[in-house]
């Protein structure tokens, strides 16, 4: 059983439908008690970093996530959910994140290398940086991004795959049992479904509970 954290900021439906397609049972919940019964967690998220952190704290889900990660079970943040794993974001004023990974969330520069439109919306290709179980059996294919902010100044050791849009944008990150995907695997065709499947396999292999 996989848990989808429902803190009021996400398109939970498409994530849950994607899990149904790959045959993984799930529970959508905002209750730490219920979520603690799972073998892996997905932290989705669409919207603003500040609102998302406020909601996580209000529902005491931040503390729960720390305990969960300490238990060794895998956590996957998607889109804003990935950004929340990092130290802070400059979206709508500086806001502290969960600080599970090192790095800061900044706005995509519209005139970094090339002049680009923000949000970064559409299909962009992945470049792999290192091997990881979540990338297993996947090609460096196209995945669907929709975001205006990106993770900067992160540890190279945790960078699994990136894409380029004005600047290098971390696309898949991971350290230990903590993973993040900046794009939407649930909307990214075959490549996305493979990545989600890989995460659920990592979950099945995790020792705890």
């Amino acid at each position: 059983m996989i848990g989808i954290v429902d803190y009021g900021m996400g398109n939970l439906f498409s994530v849950s439908k994607a899990l149904e397609r790959i045959g993984i049972p799930y529970v959508i919940s905002e209750s730490p008690e219920e979520l603690s019964q799972t073998k892996g967690l997905i932290l989705p998220g669409v919207g603003s970093f500040k609102d998302a952190m406020a909601l996580l704290k209000e529902k005491k889900l931040d503390e729960f996530l720390y305990d969960y990660v300490d238990s060794g079970r895998p956590l996957l943040g998607i889109c804003l959910g990935m950004q929340l794993l990092f130290q802070e974001s400059e979206e709508n004023g500086l806001t502290e994140g969960l600080s599970l990974l090192k790095g800061r969330v900044k706005r995509i520069p519209a005139d970094g290398g090339d002049k680009v439109k923000v949000p970064h919306m559409g299909w962009n290709n992945l470049a792999f940086h290192q091997e990881s179980p979540v990338l297993y059996g996947t090609e460096e294919g196209f995945v669907y991004f929709v975001h205006s902010y990106y993770v900067a100044e992160m540890d190279k050791e945790a960078l699994l795959a990136s894409t380029v849009y004005s600047v290098e944008i971390p696309a898949v990150v991971g350290r230990g049992n903590i993973f993040g995907m900046q794009f939407h695997p649930e909307k990214s065709g075959r490549v996305g479904m493979q990545l989600l499947t890989n995460f659920t396999k990592a979950m099945e292999q995790s020792e705890a509970i």
Binding site: F13, K17, R21, Y144, V146, K187, G189, G192
Partner: peptide, 11 residues
């Protein structure tokens, strides 16, 4: 919308 979302993995 529900049917489309449950069967397709594109936006």
């Amino acid at each position: 919308v529900q049917d489309v979302a449950s069967q397709l993995a594109i936006p």
